[in-house]
Amino acid sequence: MYFLMNVLGIFVVIGLVFALSPKKREVKWKPIGILIAAELLITWFMLGTKIGGQAIGGFASFFNWLIACANEGISFVFPSVMANEQVDFFFSALLPIIVIVTFFDILSYFGILTWIIDKVGWVISRLSRLPKLESFFSIQMMFLGNTEALAVIRQQLVVLKDNRLLTFGIMSMSSISGSIIGAYLTMVPAEYVFSAIPLNCLNALLLASILNPVQVAKEEDIVYVPPKSEKKDFFSTISNSMMVGMNMVIVILAMVIGYVALTAILNGILGFFIDGLTIQKIFSILFSPFAFLLGLSWKDTMYVAQLMGIKMATNEFVAMLDLKENLNTLSPHTVAVATTFLTSFANFSTVGMIYGTFSSVLGDEKSSMIGKNVWKLLVSGMAVSLLSAMIVGLYVW
């Protein structure tokens, strides 16, 4: 029964997004079918084969090594803190981001990351027959994050029409940045984090082509390549990367502290009027139909629905910290779908980040298109996370 509910959930999510699409007649189902088939194959390979499991183990080991290297630098500055048996979230999960951001920028500087993005983006474009720029952008988001990926293609965004710009805004809701993976691995199982990454990338492309399908002429189907004149010297690049990483740490820290505190304030106000009422309980009711479609028992449905609400209202870090405390009490299927759902940037604050990026790159007039379609961004972000979780859930029971 639970497996059938999980399968049904996939069709329900795609059906709901299609129902909300203002351009139903323009939706091309063949590329969508190809992408779903590719996702099922990728997930089976990662979670159902020995080679896939070894690959995930290798990636996890690599990121753990990067975190260990980062801890060397943190220990130099905070030796007494890092010597403790239990290290605070700020030191164990956030500060390593500085090193990981720098590492990814070094890969980009020498063209290694660019080469990977180009090749994988080309494969996705050829496989799905969807536009090249959108296909490449989905891969860029996977490694660089949404705002960074938008900055990379900023010269091409300037000449795109509004309806196509909206596609990039919709897709931006479903990204994560490679630099943040290390922080996730300190809280939730690695195999589901690494499974979610490519699925989110493909599902962002898939659902954007349903929610906002666009027709791209052959002469317009090109990918912007930054000129060499934009390239800085190596030491300026890594120094800037470290500052970017530190800024990211501060932003995440401020958001976690602020949102947790605001949640406590809101719970206090709700409890004043109705004893025992919390925002978590409200979210668990609102999101329970979607959580039930993940193939969960009723008890786990209410808990995962609560995590969904926390993620959408605050961010995935707050929800992952909660999940981390309950991993040992949940079934393997529940852990798999919950972790996969949480592995993305889809929440209300991300809408603000996307709007801010569009505004800085394109100006207020063109960026107003994002403000008028916030609901599409939120629907896409929620649907991508659900679809990725449902596909992973098919293979873990």
Rank of each mutant, 00 (worst) to 15 (best):
residue 112 I to H: 03
residue 321 L to H: 02
residue 181 I to G: 01
residue 102 T to P: 07
residue 342 L to G: 07
residue 15 G to L: 11
residue 50 K to Q: 12
residue 297 S to L: 07
residue 389 A to T: 05
residue 389 A to L: 11
residue 98 I to H: 03
residue 285 I to D: 11
residue 295 G to K: 07
residue 360 S to T: 14
residue 251 V to P: 00
residue 122 W to Y: 09
residue 138 S to L: 04
residue 176 I to N: 05
residue 138 S to Q: 08
residue 359 S to F: 01
residue 370 I to S: 10
residue 164 R to D: 08
residue 7 V to G: 09
residue 372 K to V: 01
residue 345 F to C: 06
residue 284 S to Q: 12
residue 54 Q to D: 11
residue 328 N to M: 11
residue 244 V to W: 00
residue 286 L to A: 15
residue 69 C to A: 13
residue 194 F to D: 02
residue 349 S to T: 14
residue 23 K to R: 15
residue 265 I to W: 08
residue 218 K to A: 14
residue 322 D to A: 12
residue 6 N to A: 12
residue 371 G to Y: 03
residue 188 V to W: 01
residue 155 Q to E: 15
residue 396 V to H: 00
residue 19 A to S: 14
residue 9 G to H: 09
residue 340 T to C: 12
residue 5 M to P: 00
residue 120 V to M: 13
residue 318 V to E: 06
residue 49 T to K: 06
residue 292 F to W: 10
residue 188 V to Y: 01
residue 174 S to F: 02
residue 317 F to I: 11
residue 116 I to M: 13
residue 306 Q to K: 14
residue 34 I to W: 02
residue 319 A to Y: 04
residue 349 S to F: 04
residue 41 L to E: 05
residue 249 V to R: 13
residue 134 E to Y: 00
residue 312 M to D: 08
residue 139 I to C: 03
residue 86 Q to D: 15
residue 363 G to S: 06
residue 146 N to I: 03
residue 220 E to R: 11
residue 140 Q to L: 11
residue 46 M to T: 05
residue 395 Y to R: 06
residue 292 F to S: 11
residue 395 Y to C: 14
residue 270 L to G: 10
residue 335 V to L: 10
residue 345 F to T: 05
